[in-house]
Simulated scan of single mutants.
Amino acid sequence: MSPVPVSQAEPAHPLVSVITPTYNAARFIRETIDSVKRQTYPHWELILIDDASSDDTVPIIREELADPRIRLIVLAQNSGAAVARNTGISAANGRYIAFLDSDDLWLPQKLEKQVAFMQERDAAFSFTRYRMIQEDGTHTPYVVPIPEKIDYRGLLKNTIIGCLTVMLDKEKLGTIQMPNLRTRQDTALWLNILKQGHLAYGIQEELSQYRRVAGSISSNKWKAAKNTWRLYRDIEKLSFASAAWCFVHYGWNAWKKNVGQT
């Protein structure tokens, strides 16, 4: 499908701004970009924010800039994923904001189906099921199950929403900004939105693929647990008893998820 310039996106087909932070992502970034270019929904812009990479990430991205829907912002110094994502959000022109990390992938109908779902449900926040894939791209049999909808208390107990699957409606939510945290900034944003009374609606279909990369922050379960506890206590300001109650549920759900991957 030939590119459709951003300026030609029709009102009936709202523009989706895809936010992709990159840092030393040369191994995977071309495949990630290709998964966006293969979308059956052509009304998107891809904003890549490079967080001071020291490898060939930026030269690889520059080769993709012939597509007018793809934009690159290069940060002068490494500032973390929250700053990179917020920089992209500030530069976004679309009604909808979607997130895709630099090593993850989308299935071709992801945007088409998710935009239609958002419009049909009049939803401000949606997410999808996603499959775990190995570092080399090999599929695992595990597709992460998700609820049909989740509220603030539910997400505290089960951090099930994959960042690569999320779509947000700026018209309904207003200002969207991730807390300036090194980790869990995405979950902190989801909690902030749900705390305002919104619900997140789950699309019961695998539309995204999460790459398990050795040495990544998310691959360290102990650090993930510690960061979740800090999120409860330092960001959400839960009492010790409430945080402990949520943490027990979080641990149980994380264990079930890990068992499903083995």
Rank of each mutant, 00 (worst) to 15 (best):
A214C: 08
R27Q: 12
S208A: 15
D186H: 03
A26V: 07
K170C: 06
R27A: 13
I150S: 01
K149Q: 09
S216G: 04
E148Y: 10
A98P: 01
L231T: 11
T128N: 05
Q185C: 07
I19K: 00
Y23H: 14
T228R: 14
V115T: 01
E205P: 03
L105S: 12
M178V: 02
Q204P: 04
N158Y: 10
R71P: 06
K226N: 15
D51R: 03
G197V: 12
S53M: 06
P108R: 15
D136V: 11
S17W: 02
K256E: 12
P14F: 00
T159G: 10
S54W: 09
D104L: 10
F240V: 14
R27S: 11
L105P: 04
R182D: 07
I49G: 04
K195Q: 14
T183M: 02
Q209V: 04
N227V: 03
C163P: 02
D50Q: 08
R38M: 13
H139C: 06
G137V: 10
K113T: 04
S35H: 15
D122C: 09
L105A: 13
N258W: 07
Q109T: 12
R71C: 06
K110P: 01
T32C: 09
S90T: 14
P179L: 05
D103N: 15
T187D: 09
E31P: 02
K157T: 11
W245S: 15
R62E: 14
L105Q: 15
P42N: 04
I97D: 01
K172W: 04
I29K: 08
C163V: 07
R85T: 10
I161C: 04
A12W: 01
A25L: 01
V213R: 13
T175R: 14
A254C: 10
R212N: 13
N24P: 02
F99L: 13
L48C: 15
K256S: 08
T20R: 02
T165E: 00
N192H: 14
G137Q: 09
L156H: 12
D55F: 03
D234R: 15
T138N: 12
S17G: 05
A116P: 05
I146L: 07
E236G: 04
L46A: 13
T128P: 00
